[in-house]
Nucleic acid binder design. Structure first.
Lengths: 138, 138
DNA sequence: TTTAAAGTTGTAATAATTACAAAGTTGTAA
DNA sequence: TTACAACTTTGTAATTATTACAACTTTAAA
């Protein structure tokens, strides 16, 4: 499906850089995120990795993603009403959700001069979600 | 607290316009939203109205807000991780959340030429959330 | 007044996430 | 190698927002 490959060494280097000890589970979850650029949920990751990691626990997936978000390796995406998606691409961009097929698309951000934030307010981060109909569903 | 007043007649007219029969609960909830421009949650509304509407049920608050959202009287705001806020102001604007005090501020939108949505994609609606530190908390 | 539809209520079910304690793993110092 | 502490994983239970649903109440029309 996804062409982009990531080698084991890069995974290890990334974890190392961020001061995260490279457990088998963490490596596998991070690798999964690199190979599946679909903004997967905990459920997705858990289901897909379970066949390989027979004893994987959902709690581990939650713990690991929490850690990755804290260490700024992945970004949590609040585009869904009732669960969180995760994005391995932490560069500034926004998301489009097709309200028909449910697919999430990445959107380049339009270097907007960041809104009318009043003086005295300090932006830390922001998120933009666009909902609509995608090309395939029209 | 909030200066903006709304009279009973306007509330009734608005419900009428949208084809919503004006039950006591609906009137009170809508009035609450007009008087409390704080992007309240179901919990907020339920707690605050309970003293006046002794038998109010949380389900009624959920039902009513669902109806209001469908009829385009209020907008659901997904700025929080684990509950929904509601905004009586349905005009296009974005939201700022102070990560220190938790307060939500309205932001005028910077008539951005709506992002780089690829041709063939059709936007239906969008949301922008900015997180940071507000004036009072610096 | 009768009756059906609409609205409200309380409780139970659902589902994502977190809390927590027990079990397993790893690395290091003796 | 052994002992031990720190870290990691796991499974279960708790939490919490929201939805489902059925019973009850209100409303409005005939």
């Amino acid at each position: 499906m996804n062409i982009k490959k990531i080698d084991h060494q890069s995974i290890l280097r990334l974890l190392e850089e961020k001061g995260i000890s490279p457990s088998f589970q963490r490596i596998k979850i991070l690798e999964y995120l690199f190979l599946n650029r679909t903004h997967p949920s905990v459920e997705d990751i858990y289901k897909d990795l379970s066949s390989e990691l027979l004893t994987l626990s959902k709690t581990t997936v939650y713990n690991t993603l929490k850690l990755f978000v804290e260490k700024n390796i992945v970004k949590a995406i609040g585009i869904e009403k009732d669960f969180v998606r995760y994005d391995i691409d932490i560069s500034p961009h926004s998301h489009f959700k097709c309200i028909k097929c449910g697919k999430i698309y990445d959107l380049k951000i339009n270097e907007e001069k960041d809104n009318n934030i009043d003086e005295g307010f300090k932006k830390v981060y922001s998120e933009k979600y666009i909902y609509g109909i995608c090309k395939n569903c029209k």
